[in-house]
């Protein structure tokens, strides 16, 4: 059977169960509101533009945060790959920072930047930077020595060697790093918004929760999950696949 048909069937069954359970009052609406209520909340949200503004605000923070983390991550990654001393000192710090969820920085960030956008963006940047750093570092270290030898016999040295051989050879790692940085940044953004101030998807989620509007809570959760899946599956995984294939790295 076509996997898409399987998926459609699966979701139909799931929603049918949800609908039936709500109708027969197997659970209270405050625990899990009926699907049509969720749909209604979403439609209202889009009609009065709250959710539209939320999406715009969230994506603005994500764009700034992810953009910064990709730039900083690449810079740090190149530094760690090239300088043994930096790798042995700063590299340890990066590894340690990568192993903690970036949201733990929020209290400190609020003290530094105030209860505003900057604090959230800071957390997003921390979320994406280190995974990008580690991927770029590995990408540059893993460039086949054969490529470098071949380039040298063709008279390519120094900065040119970086520009024409090492960076292009590391592109698969750039793509993987970006994909992971996006995933971490997206999670960090939602957590940050949830604990900070609006507008934004995470903020609306908490706001709805405070007012007991569980239909909107679930509606926003669905939006968050939907965006995450679309970006990962339809954008990053496709790029990654075609790059790995071209670079001859696909297993």
């Amino acid at each position: 059977m076509n996997p898409n048909i399987k998926r459609i069937l699966f979701f139909t069954v799931l929603i049918a169960f949800w609908y039936t359970g709500s109708k027969l009052e197997w659970w209270l609406p405050i625990i899990l509101p009926a699907p049509e209520k969720v749909l209604e909340a979403l439609l209202t949200g889009f009609q009065d533009k709250t959710l539209v503004y939320d999406l715009i605000a969230s994506f603005k923070r994500l764009a700034i945060g992810l953009g910064l983390s990709l730039v900083i991550g690449t810079g740090l990654g190149v530094l760690l790959a090239k300088s043994k001393t930096a790798d042995e000192t700063l590299g340890t710090v990066v590894l340690a920072l990568q192993s903690v969820p970036s949201i733990i920085w929020l209290p400190l960030a609020i003290m530094w930047f105030g209860m505003n956008e900057k604090a959230v963006i800071f957390v997003v940047v921390l979320g994406g930077t280190f995974v990008m750093t580690l991927n770029i570092r590995v990408g540059i270290k893993n460039v086949s020595p054969l490529f470098i030898k071949a380039a040298k016999t063709m008279g390519v040295n120094g900065w040119d060697l970086y520009k024409r051989v090492i960076f292009p050879a590391a592109i698969p790692y750039v793509v993987t790093g970006s994909r992971l940085a996006w995933a971490f940044a997206w999670r960090a953004l939602m957590a940050g918004e949830l604990l900070s101030t609006g507008p934004g998807l995470g903020y609306t989620l908490r706001y709805a929760s405070d007012f007991g509007d569980m239909a909107l809570v679930i509606g926003v959760m669905i939006i968050i999950g939907f965006i995450g899946t679309i970006v990962d599956q339809l954008i990053f995984q496709r790029i990654e696949k075609s790059v790995l294939n071209r670079w001859g790295l696909e297993s």
Binding site: L146, F147, A150, T153, P168
Partner: peptide
Amino acid sequence: EKSGKDRGMVFQQAALFPWLNVLENVIFP
């Protein structure tokens, strides 16, 4: 003293750059 274009080298592995097509690979040097 060092490598140079007066000595072309062919290795056991072709060492072609995978991000360039055939023509671009040969244009590379």
